[in-house]
Amino acid sequence: MTARLSAQIGFLKVADRLKSVERANVLLDLSRPENSAEHSWHLALWALVLEPFAGAGVSVDRAIRMLLLHDLVEIETGDHPIHEETDWDAVARAERAAARRLFGLLPPDQAAMFLDLWTEFEADTTPDARYAKMLDRCQPLFQVLCADAPRSDHVEVVRENLLNGRAAYLSSAFPEAFTHAMALLENTPGQQDAFTSRLLFLAEADKLKSVFRASRLLDDSRFENSAEHSWHIMLYAWVLSEHGVHPVDTDRVLRMLLLHDLVEIDAGDNPIHGNVDHAAQDALEQAAAERLFGLLPPEQGVSLRSLWQEFEAAETPEAIFGKAVDRVQTPIANLENGGGSWISYRVSLPQLEARVGRPVRRGAPDLWTWLQPQLLDCFTRLGLPV
């Protein structure tokens, strides 16, 4: 079990590098380029929220899993903007080789499963893959067009893509999105429909990419943001689901983790080792949930808020495991980056046991058993209280 878990964690550590792969698109506030990890999180959110457009026979949960994986190869190959002159056959070969290497870090059964799912997405022939691909071609259009003052060069890329490029097929595959994109391009009033009633929420979610946490990337280059964190712990939950103390519906856990930090758009992140007024913070988060999920059509907003509330309550097996995964990711990062937030907050090992160890043991005790000797060694080396 130790060797298997070590291989799984090894893969998840390498996945952290996707947070440093920059895309051609920028955040809606135009403050910086978007990275491929937070983009993958946002696409998974699009897949969940636009479930009414998935079509008969589509498993939205499988599409979400595809979107969590789809850009991992960019750790090795980088991002390739669609408007640049590119040898796409060479890119495809490089990405297939990267997929074999990256997923090959996992135990053989998971390596085969992940590679098969990634390959299915790339082939774009099954209903699940077609839905996921449709969103991957659609979301970047609105990443440009929903900005308050879109960059003119990016607008022209969108125009060409819609009229003559990969997104042109959306006119038949996703006419609601195509029509609204054209309306935004031409600055004409768009019709209100089931797509536009969800677009405001999806655009607002972009702000999570600008909420920074106390934890740092594994390479210690910067602080992590809450959107890429959400992507990463979804991947953690998927890879490590066998280590839960109870059998869980993994797809339900993934949906919870997809949503769990959205309230930080309004309420901010509060470090687990900081001084927090928990009653005041809870009130802020409840108000944030009311506003954010209230941007959706009422029935869907109530449903997603209920899922968020289930995670917060931490009573169901899925929520208990989700909480364990949410807690375990930062210690693994801190072990790699030289202590990170433990040094900033002068954390003691007993404090870590109480604040992190307890929820991890409750949901996934094997993970804490695996971590403990490494934590003791690290705290001793750093001169932190043990």
Rank of each mutant, 00 (worst) to 15 (best):
V347E: 04
T316Y: 04
D219H: 05
Q281P: 00
P150N: 06
L115A: 13
V60F: 04
Y236M: 11
V158L: 06
T196W: 12
R252M: 05
L50V: 02
F212V: 07
L240D: 01
E204F: 05
R62W: 00
L18R: 03
R346S: 13
R96C: 08
A3L: 15
L102I: 12
S221E: 14
P331S: 08
L185C: 08
D282C: 10
A177F: 01
Q139H: 10
P127M: 06
L208D: 07
A56Q: 13
L48A: 07
A132V: 00
V263E: 14
T380G: 09
V21E: 06
A7G: 01
R23C: 14
N334Y: 11
D261G: 02
E95C: 02
G268S: 08
R32C: 07
C378I: 06
F321C: 03
A267R: 01
T2S: 12
A3E: 14
T126E: 01
F121Q: 00
L69V: 00
G294A: 10
Q374S: 13
G301E: 07
G274I: 12
E95A: 14
A112L: 12
L69W: 02
R216Y: 14
L30F: 11
W308H: 09
S31A: 14
I75R: 04
F201W: 06
P107A: 10
L106T: 03
I9N: 00
A44S: 09
V144G: 00
A94H: 08
E204W: 11
E336A: 15
